[in-house]
Simulated scan of single mutants.
Amino acid sequence: MGVRGTLPPCGATGIRLLIGELEALLLQRYSLLEHVRQQYPQATVYMFADAWAKLQSEWLELERRTQRVELEMHLKLMSYLRSEPLKIKLEAASPDVTVDDEQFAEHLGLAIVTNDGQPNTVSLSLIAAYLRAKSAIGSEQARLLGLREGEAPPDSLPSRMVLAYAALIHLMHTEMLSTFVDHVGEAIIIGPEALALVQGRIEELQLVVDAAELAFATVATLRKGISDGWFTRSTKGPKSPISLRFGTPRRMQQPYIDSLL
């Protein structure tokens, strides 16, 4: 990060500050644009017109990619999983050992709940038949859980089961996770793979939301600058500007987002 040229003393007039879209985002992220405005109230901030257009299009693209409802669901999911320590056991991954849910369940000698009914697993269809027979859910809820026609309900289910990630997310989306936890077995175990995938999904969704909100705030600040007269878009740039360069501008894809937050 650096500045080409030397900033004049505070209070100097006629300052022309040239920034790109990356610099604008970073100035907004660390509240430096407001600091510059306070120190140099007569300064004019410039951005090339194509950079301004790119900043706005990137904001719209990020906003299009946000999944706020999905993020809220995952945050509520994690909160719920942590709120039931007597019924739900969360198993964090060991730093030096990586195993998937199936290997984890096999290592512990436990059944694993999946949504596809692979051999040696407990399918959500079987779970739906069991819950339907216990009158814990209705026919529509059983259908949403994937109850297959002719699926006979078991007399009982294992007292302790590992819940695979895909089955966990299916229960979340159908809003039947708490019903499952309340009526099935003594303990439900969320293995290290499922737990890591939920946490990773939250981070991924939050990253995009944060980046979209940063881009929106930056565009809003500069739009206000246009109306207030301290920000202008230019096709040629100002004469003898102070040019901020915080690195090589890149498209606002994953590495770019990472650099902003």
Results as ranks from 00 to 15, higher is better:
152 A>S: 09
163 L>Y: 04
213 E>A: 13
195 L>P: 02
35 H>F: 15
29 R>S: 12
193 E>M: 10
140 E>M: 07
192 P>M: 01
79 S>M: 02
259 S>R: 12
55 L>D: 05
129 A>F: 03
177 L>S: 04
172 M>Q: 13
125 S>Y: 10
160 R>W: 13
59 W>Q: 12
46 Y>N: 06
39 Q>L: 15
97 V>L: 14
230 W>P: 00
208 V>A: 06
99 V>Y: 02
143 R>N: 14
44 T>F: 04
41 P>H: 08
16 R>G: 03
146 G>Y: 10
185 G>C: 09
157 L>I: 08
41 P>Q: 06
246 F>L: 09
243 S>M: 15
161 M>Y: 07
29 R>K: 15
89 K>W: 08
92 A>I: 01
261 L>N: 03
238 P>N: 11
179 T>Q: 07
34 E>D: 13
177 L>D: 02
45 V>A: 06
48 F>A: 04
188 I>W: 06
249 P>L: 07
86 L>A: 15
239 K>W: 10
6 T>C: 07
192 P>R: 00
40 Y>L: 01
20 G>F: 01
219 V>L: 08
40 Y>C: 01
55 L>T: 06
172 M>F: 05
180 F>Q: 03
83 S>G: 12
251 R>P: 06
95 P>N: 09
150 G>I: 06
222 L>S: 03
33 L>Y: 03
68 R>Y: 01
67 Q>T: 00
144 L>G: 12
221 T>M: 13
200 G>D: 05
174 T>Q: 08
47 M>L: 05
